[in-house]
Design a protein around this nucleic acid. Structure first.
Length: 470
DNA sequence: ATTTTGACGCT
DNA sequence: AGCGTCAA
């Protein structure tokens, strides 16, 4: 665990040095993955569609031609070239083609009668492996991660007793400065005496991020955007300020100016019902207006946890730590059966559970080899008449058959409780992982424990080779 | 015909 | 354990 400095327990608590927290977001990631697999798509307006023109039944391998320009499926990723034509995520193929006749539509691979996102997951894992070289790394989704690069930033601040140096690719680096957003050159030419400790740390962190993004670009060919700030809330907010292929620094002095005009729903976790409720109950729209509401009133209206939490959010404060976790906590796969295709018989449930279990078993198997872990719990989920239901059980084994039959048993349990049912979503998942890493010798254990001075001090050197396949 | 994932909080 | 919310 984390060594707790004794002074944390005393009454005199020095201010912790501000952290440098980064949110990295790949640009139109699925599109970039497809361009990497078919370089002839480079520079063209493209989109990735998730609808199989053959009714999702025929397998479409990653390696076979997957451009179906007559597809009317839903767009799940749109390249920046296509966005320039007004093509948007969630558009249908026909509407997108009206906006951009040259649009190239790439179909997601399919297997077992369903979409198979494996190529994107594996590409995302490659990116995470590079980002984790820079510090504490938390996988936030298939194409996003949080980093805590405080340690490396501190090391550089000590090393260059001098001052932050202009990052790599300064034209891809912005700063939210006193006059709004600007390029980073002026900010980095701040005179030595004028840097605050906090800004200096952000500047060194920004150099780390610029280097990491450069490595991702040269080793994998993917561009990404990033936000650099003092916590996850703000880093996430400013990673999206300038896309694609740009990183944005948010100094503390600019936090209020960024937040005040912002719509409440733009803050992470306030994009849904709670955010709506907050805006409606208070009769406000912006974060600045929220900041003006007394904490006592927020506490009265939204409770002893949520009230103070909103009060802090409105000030750009968040204590949510960056977790050290590069792997997902659960593996799941499922399929939607819309109106006409809804499942009405146990026979069909059994068939589709087998299909889905094939993919899940495959993914559990490769995860076990790569990450030396196995799930201890599985679950089945389904939707019926708009209601979502889930049941779970101990992992019965890792084979397709054991997963499928355990899933069927869980569904039978649910079916037995009702006279009529219709399944419109079917989902299998595995979670609660246990490590199966070979137990290291005592000598090896002490050796590696001694090397762990702290998190995020590895610099940008490649990590030790993975304990890969045997 | 907005799918297919994932994380997390509440109870 | 199961449900609901939020997000990309």
């Amino acid at each position: 665990g984390h060594p707790h400095p004794v002074w944390r327990m005393t009454s005199r608590v020095p201010a912790l040095p501000r952290a440098v927290v980064v949110h990295v977001d790949l640009d139109a990631f699925y599109c970039q993955v497809e361009v990497g697999r078919d370089p002839s798509l480079q520079g063209q307006p493209i989109a990735v569609v998730q609808y199989n023109p053959f009714g999702d039944l025929r397998t479409i391998l990653p390696s076979e031609p997957r451009i179906f320009n007559d597809s009317n499926g839903s767009l799940i990723a749109v390249s920046y070239e296509a966005r320039a034509f007004g093509v948007k995520r969630n558009m249908r193929g026909d509407e997108a083609r009206r906006q951009c006749p040259e649009l190239q539509l790439v179909q997601v691979p399919t297997a077992n009668g369903k979409a198979d996102l494996t190529i994107y997951r594996e590409a995302g894992a490659q990116v995470i492996d590079i980002l984790a070289r820079g510090g504490v790394c938390e996988r936030a989704s298939i194409d996003e991660a949080y980093l805590d690069v405080t340690e490396e930033a501190l090391r550089r601040a000590r090393r260059d007793h001098g001052r932050p140096v202009l990052p790599l690719n300064p034209e891809q680096c912005r700063v939210y400065g006193p006059d709004g957003v600007a390029g980073c050159e002026a900010w980095f030419s701040t005179p030595d005496w004028a840097w605050s400790d906090a800004d200096e740390l952000l500047a060194h962190g920004a150099a780390v991020v610029a280097e990491l993004r450069h490595v991702v670009q040269t080793e994998l060919g993917y561009s990404c955007s990033a936000g650099i700030a003092h916590n996850k809330l703000l880093a996430k907010l400013c990673s999206g300020l300038h896309k694609p292929q740009q990183q944005t620094i948010l100094p503390e002095s600019a936090v209020q100016r960024l937040l005040d005009p912002l719509m409440i729903a733009k803050l992470r976790s306030l994009g849904g019902k709670l955010g709506q409720q907050v805006a409606q109950v208070l009769g406000i729209e912006t974060v600045g207006q929220l900041r003006a509401v007394p904490e006592t009133r927020l506490r009265t209206l939204f409770g002893p946890e949520t009230g103070p939490w909103l009060h802090r959010m409105a000030r750009g404060q968040s204590s949510d730590r960056v977790q050290q976790r590069t792997l997902p906590k659960s593996l799941g796969c499922g399929k939607t059966f819309r109106a006409q295709n809804a499942i009405r018989t146990l026979q069909d449930v059994q068939y589709w559970l087998q299909q889905i279990a094939r993919e899940l078993a495959e993914r559990i198997g490769s995860d076990r080899e790569r990450n030396q872990r196995v799930p201890q719990t599985m679950g089945v989920g389904l939707s019926s008449h708009g209601d979502h239901v889930s049941r779970s059980c101990a992992m019965p084994g890792l084979s397709v058959e054991s997963i499928a039959s355990a899933g069927l048993a869980l569904v039978r349990r649910w079916v037995a409780e009702r006279a009529e049912w219709t399944v419109t979503d079917l989902y299998l998942s595995a979670c609660n992982f246990r490590s199966i890493a070979a137990c290291p010798s005592i000598a090896t254990f002490f050796q590696s424990a001694a090397g762990e001075g702290g998190q995020g001090t590895q610099g940008l050197a490649p990590p030790d080779p993975r304990p890969d396949s045997p």
